[in-house]
């Protein structure tokens, strides 16, 4: 009895192995044939490309109106929900009220004191005290969120953009703990009722995933500038930090610019021209 049970388990084990190996064998076998007619996946010809994308925000020309427009444009382009929006009662009946501190934001206004907390100064020039500073994902060269993610749902693209794969995110929020810039938001609930007008060019998100600025990767791929740049009246420039001839490099060459929390060594790619 014991012997037959044992041999049965053995046989079963071998068969499971064989079934498991079949797809691999099939894949190897398939890779050898018909290479000529294989489909291809490429960039679109009109796509913008860079070695390392970066952003420069010209704080000298920034004001509350422009900053407000930028935040609005970003929300609209990326379907970022707005918890102050009143959801449609017919479409979403019986919704629980949103909690303000569970809100989502990709780019938003902060005062100097909060944008650069470790550079606080008793004798800070007056103009900086009232100035709005736009903060967003810094697309760090050494991104702590990328290092922390247990599924590579957040990852660094070759062109420097720190991306989120919403399909893969398990919602553990390790990246939120890891980010030193508070750039990440979590979908504590289904965001759709709080999107005033859904932009069909970009998917919304489901509950339970983390999101953040993706530098409008979808727009860059179509040869469009990020939504914030478009709304910025020239106060935001996005370009290739590794290209000495780029507009952003020219700006950084001529002006004094700072980055947030440089001392942490994450190498942010967002510069603030002071």
């Amino acid at each position: 009895m014991i012997h037959s049970r044992r041999s049965f388990i053995k046989a079963a084990g071998v068969s499971v192995l064989a079934i498991g190996a079949a797809p691999a064998i099939k894949a190897v076998a398939a890779s050898g044939s018909g290479a000529a007619s294989l489909p291809s996946k490429t960039r679109r010809p009109e796509a913008f490309s860079a070695k390392r994308w970066g952003m420069a925000i010209d704080c000298r020309r920034m004001n509350g109106d422009i900053a407000g427009n930028i935040v609005k444009a970003c929300r609209k382009a990326n379907n970022v929900p707005d918890f102050s929006h009143k959801p449609d009662e017919d479409k979403y009946p019986g919704l629980r009220p949103p909690k303000k501190d569970q809100e989502l934001k990709w780019i938003w206004e902060e005062s100097y004191h909060h944008a650069f907390p470790e550079m606080e100064d008793e004798f800070l020039a007056d103009k900086f005290k009232s100035m709005p500073f736009l903060v967003t994902c810094n697309h760090c060269k050494n991104a702590p969120c990328v290092q922390a993610c247990p599924t590579r749902a957040t990852f660094k693209r070759e062109d420097g953009v720190v991306m989120m794969d919403f399909h893969r995110c398990i919602g553990c929020r390790f990246c939120m703990a890891a980010c030193p810039f508070g750039a990440r938001s979590f979908n504590f609930r289904d965001p759709k009722p709080f999107i005033p007008e859904i932009n069909p060019d970009f998917p919304t998100r489901s509950k339970g995933v983390v999101e953040k600025c993706n530098l409008c990767a979808g727009r860059l791929a179509k040869g469009l500038q990020p939504a914030c740049v478009e709304a910025s009246e020239g106060t935001i420039v996005v370009g290739d930090l590794e290209d000495p001839g780029s507009e952003i490099r020219a700006l950084l060459k001529e002006n004094y610019a700072i980055r947030r929390k440089q001392e942490l060594g994450t190498e942010p790619s967002v510069y603030y021209i002071m």
Partner: peptide, 8 residues
């Protein structure tokens, strides 16, 4: 309904 029910 998601983690909205928590205090996080």
């Amino acid at each position: 309904n998601g983690l909205m029910i928590t205090g996080m």
